[in-house]
């Protein structure tokens, strides 16, 4: 198969379906008196790859943390995989096991080996037998290209390797949606590529992804929509080509000129 064929095959897998995974309507959030998210409206269908960008403090992290209720919102509705995340949610764990999350600082469990990090949730949340969980975990560690590190502790790995473990750990739960919060911004430049490669592959496999990142190359390559946030609002939302070449709002233009300047 030629490169083009592979690319085409990948593209065909990256189809967006009309099945709705996330719907956020008129959502507001406050930290005390501080109005951090204002009137957020967002629909995400299965298979979409959405990149969220914006200046520091604009509420990007808060927004995606609301989607698995690491943060609580105060107004509006958030539907994830058909469940509404408002009020006193007894079964929030049920949503969370379908939503994987990758953090800026990896948040691996330092007292567990890489393999144990990966099998923890499948064993204790999905009640999977240990052997099966380990087999699946090894599969994903191979996919992120570090099977040989399985018995090491996170503290013994490089940043890029740790982040790949974190991605594998999320994938072991077989999530329907993956949330990424600046997965590469704590990494040295030469490690960014290895993590982005894994994420690109994931996108090609058809995963629904929401990714807060300033890696515009990644956005151009895999995103089907780019969202720009500022001051707690979604300012602009467009397909990557339009977003980068023809930004509408002055704030987007300013932001793009800043991050693309160097």
């Amino acid at each position: 198969m030629s490169d083009q064929d592979t690319a085409a095959a990948a593209q065909s897998k990256m189809q967006v379906s009309d099945q709705e995974m996330i719907r956020i309507t008129q959502m507001h959030k406050w930290y005390g008196q501080f109005h951090v998210l204002k009137d957020i409206n967002l629909n995400v269908n299965a298979g979409e790859r959405i990149v969220i960008c914006g200046p520091s403090g604009s509420g990007k992290s808060t927004l995606i943390r609301c989607m698995n209720r690491l943060e609580e919102h105060q107004k509006g509705e958030i539907w994830v995989d058909g469940v509404e995340l408002t009020g006193d949610l007894k079964n929030i764990e049920q949503i969370r096991r379908e939503v994987g999350m990758v953090f800026q600082h990896f948040n691996l469990f330092p007292h567990l080996t890489v393999l144990e990090n990966c099998t923890l949730a499948p064993i204790w949340v999905r009640k999977m037998p240990k052997d099966e969980a380990e087999e699946i975990a090894m599969g994903f560690l191979e996919r992120v290209k570090i099977p040989e590190q399985a018995s090491k502790f996170p503290g013994q790995l490089s940043g890029g390797q740790q982040q790949r473990v974190a991605i594998a750990r999320s994938l072991c739960m077989n999530p329907k949606i993956m949330l990424f919060d600046e997965p590469t911004s704590a990494l040295d430049p030469e490690m960014i590529a290895e993590v982005l490669d894994v994420m690109v592959e994931l996108a090609h496999d058809g995963m629904t992804m929401l990714c807060v990142t300033h890696e515009m190359g990644f956005a151009k390559k895999v995103a089907n929509r780019v969202i720009f946030m500022d001051g707690g609002e979604i300012i602009e939302e467009n397909v990557p080509d339009e977003f980068f070449n023809n930004p509408q709002s002055p704030r987007t233009q300013e932001f793009l000129s800043q991050i693309l300047a160097h």
Binding site: Q94, R96, R97, V99, F103, F109, H111, L120, W124, S170
Partner: peptide, 27 residues
């Protein structure tokens, strides 16, 4: 223990006692 440890455990769907027993308390 950094807040991120609890968050990572929560984000996986571990319940309070499980995340305490498996993630937070050992550390």
């Amino acid at each position: 223990i950094p807040k991120g440890q609890r968050e990572a455990a929560d984000a996986m769907g571990l319940k309070y006692w499980a995340s305490m027993r498996l993630v937070v308390l050992p550390q």
